[in-house]
Simulated assay, not measured.
Amino acid sequence: MGKFLAVLLFLCAAGGGAFMYYQQVYAYYEEVEPDGETDVVMTSMITDAPEPVLYDDFRAIDATSSPIRYRACFTTSMSHAMLTETYLLDEDAVPLTAPGWFDCFDAREIGEAIEAGRALAFLGTENIEYGIDRVVAIHEDGRGWVWDQINPCGEVVFDGNAAPEDCPEPPEGY
Rank of each mutant, 00 (worst) to 15 (best):
M1C: 14
G2N: 15
K3L: 15
K3D: 14
L5N: 11
A6G: 11
V7M: 13
F10V: 11
F10H: 01
L11S: 10
L11T: 02
A18R: 07
F19L: 14
F19C: 11
M20L: 14
Y21I: 08
Y21F: 14
Q24E: 14
V25W: 13
V25E: 14
E30S: 14
G36S: 04
T43Y: 02
S44E: 06
S44T: 05
S44H: 04
M45K: 15
M45P: 03
M45V: 14
M45T: 12
I46H: 15
A49S: 13
P50E: 06
P52F: 11
L54N: 13
D62Q: 10
D62R: 09
D62A: 10
A63P: 09
P67K: 10
Y70W: 04
C73N: 04
C73T: 05
T75R: 06
M78N: 04
L88H: 15
L89H: 09
A93T: 05
V94E: 15
L96R: 10
P99G: 05
W101Q: 00
F105E: 02
F105D: 05
A107D: 03
E112T: 15
A113D: 02
E115W: 08
E115F: 10
R118T: 13
A119K: 00
A119L: 00
A119C: 03
L120E: 13
L123Y: 12
G124A: 06
N127H: 10
D133R: 06
V135M: 02
V136T: 03
A137E: 00
I138R: 07
H139S: 10
G142F: 08
Q149L: 11
Q149K: 07
N151Q: 08
E155P: 09
V156Y: 08
A163E: 06
P164A: 04
C167S: 07
E169P: 05
P170Q: 09
